[in-house]
Design a protein around this nucleic acid. Structure first.
Lengths: 352, 352
DNA sequence: ATGAAAGCGCTAACAT
DNA sequence: ATGTTAGCGCTTTCAT
C-alpha cells in the first residue's frame, strides 16, 4: 500500500480510501491510484486491515463437525457456507471425530485466529470451556446437539419425537420385538433417540427388552456385526430401528447377508443418498441438514448484529419417509400370544 | 498482552516469550506470567503475531472444491484437513459450483486473507488469473483437474485410461452399442473420459455412434432424463458408461424405472457409497479421493518448505471394481451382424 | 479533498 | 535473563 501510494504520488490514506471505496476522493486521483494498484497487482491485506478497523471482525467463521466427510455434516457445511458467503465471510471447518479433546483444541485453533463466530457440533461432556469465548462476545451456536453447561443458541431436531414416530410406525405395522441400534452413548442425540424408542414402546404397552437394545455403534461395521448377532439370537427381533446413518447402512448389509431384507422391517434415523434405490427402499425419519446449517449460520449473524439476543433453542422438524423397509409386517407366528395387529390403524401424524 | 505484562509486573516481551515457549525465561518469572495470563484468560492473537513473525505465515490454507457437499470433494477435504492439522494449519474451504466467476472471487477472498497455500479444483477456462499469486510465492496445487495456462503442481488420475478400461470392460462382455453419458463439456475430466471411451471403441474396431454420446449432464436428474430417452430410442444401447457419480445415480434411477437394471449393463466412473448395495451392484472405475487430497496437501507443504521445486504432475491410479452391473451380457439379438463375443477374453489388466 | 501521526496486538532486533 | 524500540499493513483520528 505504501508502494502504491509512492507510485501514484499520493498519501497512503488516499490509497486506503480508493481501495475501500470511501468517499472524498476526486475522480482523477482515484483513477491514478487504481492504475498504480493495478501496476503493482496490489491486493489489500484483509487481516491487517481488520486489526485496526472498528468492530475488529476477521470476516471468518469456525465450523466444527463430526467429520467434513460425513454426508450429514457436509450438507450442514454447505448451508453454512452459503449463508456466510453472502456476507463475504469465509469459513474454517474441521472434524472432531467425536473426540472431546480434539473439539477443544480445534476451538482454540479457531479462536486464536479470531473467528467472528463459532458453529459447533458438540462431542460430549460439557462446553464450559467456552465461557471465555462467550465473555469476549463471540457468538457460539451449537448444531445438531444441545449445549451442556453453557447457555447458548442451538439448532436441533426433536430426536425423542422422531424416534418415537419411527418406533410407533413399526408398532403400527404389528411388530412387538423391535431392536434399537444406537450410536455412542456419549452422543446426546443417540440417548434421545433411545428415549424416544422406549417411550413409543411404553405407550403401546410393549415391555422393553434389553437384549434388543444395542448401543455404542459408531460405524457401519459395528452395526453389521451387532445386527448379525441380534438376528441369530434365540428370539430375534422382527424389526430394527437404527438410530443413525452409518448404523442403518451396516444393518442393511447384515440383513442382505442373511437374506432377511424382505422379512425383517427397518426404519432408520437420518436420510441418506440412495435410500430409495436399495431393495426394499429404506424407510427413514429424515432431518434436513441444510435447514439446520442455514438456521445456525443465520443465528450467528443475528447475534453478531445484536449481541443481547437471548439464547434461543431452535427445533426443526423431522419427517417420516416410507419407502418399503419400514412397512414390512412381522411373520404370522412372531407375535404369538399378543394381539399383533391392534395398532394397525394408528396414524403417527408425522409426515411433512 | 500488555495487560498480562502489567499484571505480572514484567515487560511485554517476557510475556511473548512465555506464551511462545521461547527459552531465556526463569521458571519463577514464567510461572508468574502464566498466572497472570490465566487470570485475564489471555489468548494470543495468532493473526496479529504472524503479521510481524518471520516467514509471515497465516497458518491457513484455502481449498476450492466443486462443492463441499459432494462426497467425492468431501473425501478430498477430509484428507487435506488431516495433513494440514498435523502442521497446525487451519483450512478455509468453499464451493465453486463449477462457476468460473465464483472460482475467481473465492480465490480472491482467500488470498486477501493471506492463506499460505491454495488447493483448487479448477472449474473451466484458464487459471492465468493466478499469475499474481504465483509471483508472491503462494503454493498453488490443482486437484482432480489439470491447470490451464499456468504451470503449477497438480494431482489428477489418468481419466483417459480409466474410461478406456471401463469401456473395454463392457466391450469384453460383448457389448457393441455402448452409450457415453458425460458431465459438462467445460470440465476437463469429462472430456478426458469421453476421449478414453472413444479410444476403447476404436481399439476394438467399433464405430462411434454420436447418438449414443450425451454430454453436459451435471446432476442426477439430467442423467435420468437422458438415460430414459436413450433407452426408448429405436436402437437403444445395450450398455452405459456414465462418467461421474451423480450421472451414474441418475442412470440407475432410469434403468430401474424401465425395469432394465438387469438387462442393460452399466459401468460408472467414480465410486460411491452403497454402490454395492443396489441390485445389481454397480461396477465402477474407482478413484481414491482421500489419496488425491493427501497428495495435494503434502505438495503444498513441500513447496512451502522449498519454493524452488519444479512443478510436478502427480497421477494417481484408478481401479476397476466389478460388482455385477458391468458384467451383464447383451441380449442375444443385440449384436446382430457382429461377432458379439470376440473380446470376451480380453483382460483389461486394470485391477489394483 | 488530502495527508501525517498514532496505534491495532504482536514479534524482531537489539539493547541491558 | 529481561526490557526497549521499531515496525508488520492497515485504519483511525485529527489536521490541513
Amino acid at each position: 500500500m505504501k508502494d502504491v501510494a509512492a507510485l501514484a504520488g499520493v498519501g497512503i490514506k488516499t490509497v486506503s480510501r480508493v481501495v475501500n471505496g470511501e468517499p472524498g476522493v476526486s475522480a482523477a486521483m482515484a483513477e491514478r491510484v487504481e492504475r498504480a494498484a493495478e501496476a503493482l497487482s496490489f491486493q489489500p491485506d484483509l487481516i491487517a486491515g481488520n486489526l485496526r478497523r472498528s468492530g475488529r471482525r476477521s470476516m471468518s467463521l469456525g465450523l466444527l463437525l463430526a467429520s467434513v466427510d460425513n454426508p450429514f455434516c457436509a450438507a450442514i457445511h454447505r448451508a453454512v457456507e452459503d449463508v456466510a458467503e453472502e456476507r463475504r465471510v469465509a469459513v474454517f471447518s474441521a472434524s472432531t471425530d467425536e473426540d472431546p479433546r480434539r473439539e477443544r483444541a480445534l476451538v482454540a485453533a479457531f479462536t486464536s485466529r479470531r473467528v467472528d463466530g463459532l458453529i459447533i457440533t458438540a462431542t460430549a461432556g460439557d462446553q464450559t470451556y467456552l465461557r471465555a469465548e462467550l465473555e469476549t462476545g463471540t457468538p457460539v451456536v451449537m448444531v445438531d446437539r444441545p449445549p451442556v453447561g453453557i447457555d447458548v443458541d442451538s439448532v436441533v431436531v426433536d430426536n425423542v419425537a422422531g424416534a418415537e414416530v419411527a418406533t410407533a410406525h413399526l408398532l403400527a405395522h404389528g411388530h412387538r420385538r423391535i431392536a434399537f441400534l444406537g450410536d455412542l452413548g456419549q452422543i446426546a442425540t443417540a440417548r434421545q433417540r433411545h428415549e424416544g424408542y422406549r417411550r413409543a414402546l411404553h405407550a403401546a404397552g410393549v415391555a422393553a427388552d434389553e437384549r434388543l437394545e444395542i448401543g455404542d455403534l459408531h460405524d457401519a461395521d459395528a452395526a453389521l456385526t451387532a445386527t448379525r448377532e441380534l438376528l441369530s439370537a434365540p428370539e430375534p427381533p422382527t424389526a430394527l430401528f437404527t438410530s443413525q446413518n452409518l448404523v442403518t447402512i451396516g444393518a442393511i448389509r447384515a440383513l442382505r447377508e442373511l437374506g432377511a431384507q424382505h422379512t425383517v422391517a427397518l426404519v432408520g434415523f437420518d436420510d441418506f443418498a440412495l435410500a430409495d434405490l436399495v431393495e426394499p427402499g429404506v424407510t427413514v425419519v429424515a432431518q434436513s441438514p441444510a435447514d439446520i446449517g442455514r438456521a445456525a449460520a443465520e443465528r450467528v449473524f443475528a447475534r453478531l448484529a445484536d449481541p443481547d439476543l437471548p439464547p434461543e433453542r431452535i427445533v426443526l422438524p423431522t419427517r417420516l419417509v416410507e419407502r418399503g423397509s419400514g412397512e414390512i409386517a412381522p411373520p404370522a407366528d412372531a407375535a404369538a400370544g399378543r394381539p399383533a395387529r391392534t395398532l394397525e390403524t394408528v396414524d403417527t401424524g408425522s409426515r411433512g
